[in-house]
Amino acid sequence: MNIFRLFGDLSHLLAIIILLLKIWKTRSCAGISGKSQILFAIVYTSRYLDLMTTYISAYNTFMKIVFVATSYATVFLMYMKFKATYDRNHDTFRIEFLIVPAVILALVINQEFTVLEVLWTFSIYLESVAILPQLFLVSKTGEAESITSHYLFALGSYRALYLLNWVYRYYAEDHYDLIAIVAGLVQTVLYCDFFYLYITKVLKGKKLQLPA
């Protein structure tokens, strides 16, 4: 465990907490893409099946359980408890266009053709694009609440910090995982436009509003 990875994980955890608090406190999930949240639930479910087979550390187990549980909790809040506030008219991204290619790619490009390994690879590919419905929703409405922007910034920072972690591990531990690195790069690149708007607008106290 190095500092980049620790901060990456904490940033990921912070993103989840911000999102749950936003929904809970405002009793509303307006501006949040339920499609992205469903994708995240699929991502963590397929990736963390190794909870049953491999023990790495108490930290690892704890975080995995938290990520799986909170992803389902978010989906529950959006589609059941605060269903009335869900922005379904704007959340129209077709997630099968992300799931199907991720499945095919995982079947073709993987390190080992076993059920767990293909599911892990699928989750890595799917995670890299899972934020697209959320970014699509923001572009459709043309704006995002500050709290939603903070959520997106924390969530985007997590994989960016993992990239630094992978650079560090490559040199310090002679360790690398090409599938995770390439997918992590894609994932981080997708946030670049948002990062730019966040730094130039939200941090200066303005609302994130896209040019008309």
């Binding site: 990875r5 491999t54 690892n60 975080m63 990520f67 972690n165 360790h175 995982d177 090409l178």
Partner: peptide, 10 residues
């Protein structure tokens, strides 16, 4: 360099 299969990251 070792290719990792253990997936010790999150």
């Amino acid at each position: 360099t070792v290719i990792d299969h253990s997936h010790d990251e999150l």
